[in-house]
Computed example of a mutant assay.
Amino acid sequence: MATSSSPPPSSLDDKLCFQLYATSLKMTQLYKPMLSALKLTYPQYLVMLVLWEQEGLGIKDLAARLQQDSGSITPLVKRLEAEGYLLRNRDPRDERNRVLTLTEAGRQLRSACASIDPTIAANCSSIAGEFTVMMEGLRKLNTQLGKQVDN
Rank of each mutant, 00 (worst) to 15 (best):
M1V: 10
A2I: 09
A2C: 09
T3S: 15
P7F: 14
P7I: 13
L12I: 14
L12A: 12
D13E: 15
L16S: 12
C17H: 13
C17T: 15
L20G: 04
Y21I: 10
A22T: 08
K26T: 06
M27Q: 08
Q29K: 07
L30V: 08
K32R: 09
L35M: 04
A37G: 00
L38A: 08
L40Y: 00
L40M: 07
T41Q: 03
Y42L: 05
P43D: 00
L46G: 06
M48D: 03
L49R: 06
V50F: 00
V50C: 04
V50K: 03
W52T: 06
W52Q: 03
W52K: 05
E53N: 10
E55C: 01
D61Q: 05
L62N: 04
A63F: 01
A64M: 11
A64C: 11
R65Q: 10
S72C: 09
S72I: 01
T74S: 05
P75K: 02
P75D: 04
L76H: 05
V77K: 02
L80T: 00
G84L: 04
Y85G: 02
L86G: 00
L87R: 07
R88I: 01
R88V: 01
N89Y: 05
R90E: 13
D91F: 02
P92K: 02
R93N: 05
R96G: 08
N97W: 05
N97T: 07
N97R: 08
V99K: 03
V99M: 01
L100A: 01
T101C: 00
T101N: 07
E104Q: 12
E104D: 14
L109N: 09
R110Y: 12
S111A: 12
S111W: 09
A114G: 08
A114N: 10
I116W: 08
I116P: 04
P118A: 10
I120K: 05
S126T: 13
A128C: 09
A128F: 10
A128E: 08
G129T: 07
T132H: 10
M135P: 04
E136P: 02
T143E: 11
G146L: 10
K147P: 08
K147Q: 15
K147N: 15
Q148I: 14
V149N: 14
V149A: 14
D150V: 12
N151V: 12
